[in-house]
Amino acid sequence: MHEMGIVLHIAKTLNETAEEEKITKIGSVTLQVGEVSGIITDLFVDCWNYFKVRNEILKDSELKLETLPAVTFCGDCEKTYPTVKYGRECPYCGSYETWLLTGNECIIKEIEAETL
């Protein structure tokens, strides 16, 4: 259950940003979550909703989630393929010499904010 921990990290970053940018209220938070980031979005949304009402700046904010597709690169045939469908084994040449290009991110993309 590391979702709550991640919510706390996001809140910390946003509260720091709010202080720097003189933000009084955050209207929405857009997060980019990779398909294989290990974040369970349902659980994450629950944690977010539990937390946000307890935080002055975030309490009326809307959470927007964007999924980033997971893509794996094959070192042998140098092709890329969707990770979730095929896993570690390259569907083109059967190699296991593969590594993840994108898909494990969790990025705070942007926020909509009301300033002083």
């Binding site: 970053t13 946003l14 940003t17 990025i107 705070i108 909509e112 009301e114």
Partner: peptide, 16 residues
């Protein structure tokens, strides 16, 4: 309400 967009583009665990 008027909201401005603030770009953050920061990994959630960057502060960690």
């Amino acid at each position: 309400k008027r909201y401005d967009i603030v770009e953050i583009k920061e990994n959630v665990l960057a502060d960690n």
